[in-house]
Design a protein around this nucleic acid. Sequence first.
DNA 1: GTAATGTCTTTTATCGTGAAAAAACATTTT
DNA 2: AAAATGTTTTTTCACGATAAAAGACATTAC
Lengths: 311, 311
Amino acid sequence: MSKSNNVYKDAFNRCLRLLDETQSLPSEPELGTLLGVSRTTVRSILSRMEETGLIAWNKRNKTVLRTPRPEDFFPEEETDSLAEIIERSFMRRLLAGGAEAGMQINELELAREIGVGTTSVREFLIRFSRFGLIEKRRNSHWVLKGFTRAFALELTEIREMFELRSAAAFAALPQDSAVWADLDRLEVEHRQLASDIATRFNEFSELDERLHRLIHRASHNRFIVDFYDVIAMIFHYHYQWNKAEERQRNEVAIQEHLAYIAALKSRDPAKVDTACRKHLKSARQTLLSSIPEGRQAQPADGTLSGTFARA
Amino acid sequence: MSKSNNVYKDAFNRCLRLLDETQSLPSEPELGTLLGVSRTTVRSILSRMEETGLIAWNKRNKTVLRTPRPEDFFPEEETDSLAEIIERSFMRRLLAGGAEAGMQINELELAREIGVGTTSVREFLIRFSRFGLIEKRRNSHWVLKGFTRAFALELTEIREMFELRSAAAFAALPQDSAVWADLDRLEVEHRQLASDIATRFNEFSELDERLHRLIHRASHNRFIVDFYDVIAMIFHYHYQWNKAEERQRNEVAIQEHLAYIAALKSRDPAKVDTACRKHLKSARQTLLSSIPEGRQAQPADGTLSGTFARA
DNA sequence: GTAATGTCTTTTATCGTGAAAAAACATTTT
DNA sequence: AAAATGTTTTTTCACGATAAAAGACATTAC
C-alpha cells in the first residue's frame, strides 16, 4: 500500500454535501478551488458520482439526479490523513497515562502499533517536536519530556508575552482595517453562544481559537502566529481530556472574551492590557488545574503501552 | 546505498586526535562516552586502527604504536551527516540569489541535484520549516518565503523580547548559581579575543553563540531556549555570506558583550536592560544592513537553479 | 562482584519503488 | 480567445527493504 486516497474520499464527501444545494455542479477548475483539490481529484469524484447515479455527467453538463444517501458517503475514518491518524494515536497514548517524562519513544514500535510505515512516524515526530514535548537524541531514540506542570507554565509564559503584544498591536490598527469587521462578527457569535450556552457549550473551543488567532495575526510576526499552533494543539487535546466543569468554564471564558473584545474596540491600551491579562490568567489556571502535580495517572488496565519504554 | 557510515568516520577522526595525547586508549564504554557513539562504533574504530597499524589491540590493552599521519584520517567531506549536507546545499541555493519569495521548492529536484533520496529531503524541509523561511501548501509543494527584510524584523522582534526577559532572569539568579562561573569564563575569553582581535576576529561568532545561549538558558523556558536555534542558524549563514567589515563589526560586538557581562554581574536590572538593548539594537542593524532592500541578487551565470521555480 | 569484552538483536537512517494527487500540456467548446 | 474538457507528465506520499549504529545479553577478566 503506497498511499491512501483519503484526499479523494474526503473531497468526495464534502462534494456530496454540495449536491443538496444545487441542481448542477460548476466547472471542474471551480470545483477544484471550492474543495481545495486538483482537477485530477475532481474528475475522480465526478466519475464516481456518475457511476453511482448521483449525477449525469457529460462534458460541461453535471446534472444532479438524486439527493445523496448516507451510504453514498465514505466512512469518516477513511477520510483522515495519515498524519492525523498518527497524531491522534500518539496523543491518546501520551494523555492516557503511563507516559512519564524521560521515557523513550520507539519509532518502529509506534509504527507497528498504529499500522503505518516508519517514514510517516518519523516525519510526524519531527513535525511534532516543535511543540516541545519530545526531543531527539542524536542518532538515537526520541525522549518524552512529558505533559507536565513545567511544560504548561513555559507555554503560558510565552503565550502571555505574545498575546499582550498582539492585543496592543490590534488595538492600534487603523479604524478602516478589515479586522474590526471580523471582530464584530466574532462578538455576535459569542453573544449567540452565550445565550445558547446550555446546549452549545462545546462549540466554544472553536470560537476561542478563531478569536485568539485573529488577535495574534495583528502582530504581523510569523513566529507569533505560528506559535499559536502549539497553543491550539495543547488546548485541543486538553479540552478532549478534561471535561470537568466544561460548561461552567466555557461560560466564564465567553464573558471574558466579550470583555476583551469590548476593550479592543475601545482601542484604549490600558483597558486592552487589563482584559487580556485577566483572560490569560484564567486560561492558565484552567490548563494548570487539569495537570496533576506529580505525574500522569496510570493506565486503567495496568499495562504499559509498548510505545513508551522506561529509560 | 542505505546509510552512510559518517558517524563512524567522524568518530574515527576524532579518536585519531586522541592518540596524540596518550600511549594507550581507555576502555570501550569510556571511549564511547568520550566520542558520543555506541560501543559498536567504538569497536569498528578500534578494528580499523589495529588494521592500519595505529594501535595494538588485545582485549583491554590498546597500545598506541605510532602517531597518526594525515592519510590516516577520513576525508572531511565524508564525515558530514546527510542532514548537514542537505542543509548546506539548500542554504547555498537560498543565499546565492535567484531565490525570490513565492517560488516553489521541488523536493524531487532538490533530492536529485544533491544526490540523495527524497525522504531525506522531505525530513530536512520539515525540520527546516520551523525557521519560518519556507511553508508547506497542503498536499502540495513547499513555498519559499524568502530571506527578506520582513523576516529579519520579525526574527529580531522575538529575539529582543526573549533576550530581555532572559537577561533579567539571569541577573536575578542566586549568587551561588553555577552560571556566574560560566559567565566569568566567557568574560575572560572575550578579553583574550579582544586583545588578539587582529588575527582571531573570525572566532567571535562561536563566542557570541555561547554567551547568548548561556543567557537564554536562565529563562528556564524551552521555547525561548529552542528559539535560539533559529537565531543561531540565521547568524551562522549570515556571517558566512556577509564578510564586509567583519573585523570591525566583531570588535564593536565584543565591547558590547563586555559591557553586557559587566551589567549582568552588577545584577542591577536597569543596567542589564540598557546593556542588553544596546547590543541587540546593533545586532539588528548588522543583520538588516546585509539584506538588500528589494530582492536578492540574480545568480552570476544568469541561470536559475532548478530547485526553486517561479510560481 | 563489578566492569570489561564478545556476541547477538533491535532500532534508526536511507534508498528505490509505486500509487495518489497535482500540474502541465493539448484539444475542444462556447 | 477565453475557458472549459481531455490527456500526459511530474511530484508527492507512503511503504518495504537493507546497511549502519545502538542497545541488550552472555561471557570473561580483574
